[in-house]
């Protein structure tokens, strides 16, 4: 089976609906997918509807699906009425985009090393990579804080950025390694014969060939860093440096430990803020979609 030459063949096809593979005709296919999407979407639609309601209508019972009137002002209130979300947005972009770049570069290199090269202790080292995923952060946070304190990194973005460039995401290393392992070694050998060094192979062949996997790592780390709460909670202490995840907490109250109004005096503002906060991640996902079009991945091969 390993004599597959298929990945080397350039595959280019015009779009051609392939409902058949889904099991039935277009009607059945779309009905199935749309029904699934509706179930998944319902809670989010509720959030959207809540974000547009007036305070009095939020908890009306029986619940009302359509806001009356549409309180668009909630979004303005959420954005700037309580705390400066524009500032938080910029901050979050910094502690998201820079580390994502770091994660992609460093983790792909490390995964490349683990997948394509033999070296002593490789399996043991890889097991250690995985082990770092298995220890709950609750017991390492104090020593971590001490390290960052000695480095003078507290209340800066360095705890989020520097480790990312040093491949701190075992998840990404493992994921990329799995994908790299499916790429024929022959391909590297062929490239080597053509005079390409290991870095040329990595950059010119491996990375383009793994576009879908690399994009996946990018999207997943973007989303998880964008929504990270505990990291910023512990390492940041100046409000002008806060990311959006901490900003959302301003809509909750700790008084009474969450009695009465679920600790949220204005649910409609919180929901509006939460939806605004998730917009960039939606945009990122929309762009990333281009990596999941079948057939395309082969096109980078001979470029």
């Amino acid at each position: 089976m390993s004599g597959l030459a298929a990945p080397l063949t350039r595959v280019r096809r015009g779009p051609r609906p392939r409902y058949a593979a889904a099991g039935a005709g277009p009607v059945a296919y779309y009905t199935l997918v749309a029904a699934g999407a509706a179930v998944v979407l319902l809670p989010i639609l509720w959030a959207v509807s809540t974000s547009l309601k007036t305070a009095g209508q939020v908890f009306a019972f029986p619940p009302e699906a359509i806001p009356r009137p549409f309180a668009w002002g909630n979004y303005a209130e959420a954005w700037s009425g309580t705390v400066p979300f524009d500032r938080f947005f910029v901050n979050t972009l910094v502690i998201t985009i820079v580390p994502v770049v770091g994660t992609i570069l460093s983790c792909s290199l490390v995964a490349y090393g683990f997948a394509f090269f033999r070296f002593p202790l490789r399996n043991l080292l890889f097991l250690i990579v995985l082990a770092t995923l298995m220890i709950p952060s609750q017991v390492t946070v104090i020593p971590m804080y001490i390290v960052f304190r000695y480095l003078g990194w507290l209340d800066t973005y360095k705890p989020f950025i520097v480790p990312a460039f040093l491949a701190d995401s075992a998840f990404s290393i493992f994921l990329l390694r799995q994908f790299f392992l499916t790429i024929p070694l022959d391909l590297r050998d062929a490239a080597t014969i053509d005079g390409a060094g290991p870095m040329t192979f990595y950059w010119r062949i491996l990375m383009p060939l793994s576009r879908a996997a690399v994009t996946t790592v990018a999207v997943i780390s973007f989303v998880s860093r964008w929504n990270d709460f505990f990291g910023p909670l512990i390492y940041l202490s100046s409000i002008p440096k806060f990311p959006v995840s901490l900003g959302l907490s301003f809509f909750k109250t700790f008084y009474g430990g969450g009695s009465g109004g679920a600790g949220v005096p204005h649910m409609e503002w919180l929901m509006a803020a939460a939806l605004l906060v998730s917009l960039p991640t939606i945009v990122v996902f929309a762009f990333a979609q281009r990596a999941y079009i079948r057939g395309v991945i082969m096109s980078g091969l001979r470029g």
């Binding site: 460093s106 983790c107 290199l109 490390v110 490349y112 090393g113 683990f114 394509f116 090269f117 033999r118 070296f119 490789r122 080292l125 250690i128 990579v129 770092t132 220890i135 390492t140 946070v141 104090i142 020593p143 971590m144 390290v147 480790p163 460039f165 040093l166 491949a167 701190d168 290393i173 290991p198």
Partner: peptide, 21 residues
């Protein structure tokens, strides 16, 4: 080459993870 490639992880692990663990 393999060692060099996994070096970023090695450094990060020694600097930020190994100690706390």
């Amino acid at each position: 080459t393999g060692f060099l490639l996994i070096l970023p992880w090695g450094l990060g692990f020694l600097a930020f993870t190994a100690g706390p663990m």
